[in-house]
């Protein structure tokens, strides 16, 4: 089973890399570009398909694949639209 996890910086977090890309796009003839956010995309191939697979994947999305303090994530299965997008949580002290 194939999954895709897209991790992006939270809106409240300054994304200097995104701003640099936005400026480059404007300079290259697309002044319409309002904003760019740069994140990362993880393509994950999983063998089998136990019932709690997605729940466990969400757990790892929060604990390992993203840092909920500064990032949001979206988990997609087989290229389907994401069912849930994580928001912040408050386990950190």
């Amino acid at each position: 089973m194939k999954f895709k996890v897209v991790v992006t910086p939270k809106k409240a977090v300054l994304d200097p890399q995104g701003n640099a890309v936005r400026d480059a796009m404007r300079h290259l003839g697309m002044p319409e570009v309002q904003s760019v956010r740069v994140g990362k995309c993880l393509e994950i191939d999983v063998a089998g398909g136990s019932v709690d697979l997605e729940t466990r994947l969400h757990g790892l999305c929060r604990d390992l694949l993203s840092n909920p303090v500064i990032e949001d994530y979206a988990l997609e299965r087989n290229g389907m639209a994401p069912k849930t997008t994580a928001r912040s949580r408050s386990k950190r002290r």
Partner: peptide, 17 residues
Amino acid sequence: LCEAGLLPGALARNQSL
């Protein structure tokens, strides 16, 4: 320590890149 949740907040990419 931040990633482990022993300290709050996070360290992000330098503003200057």
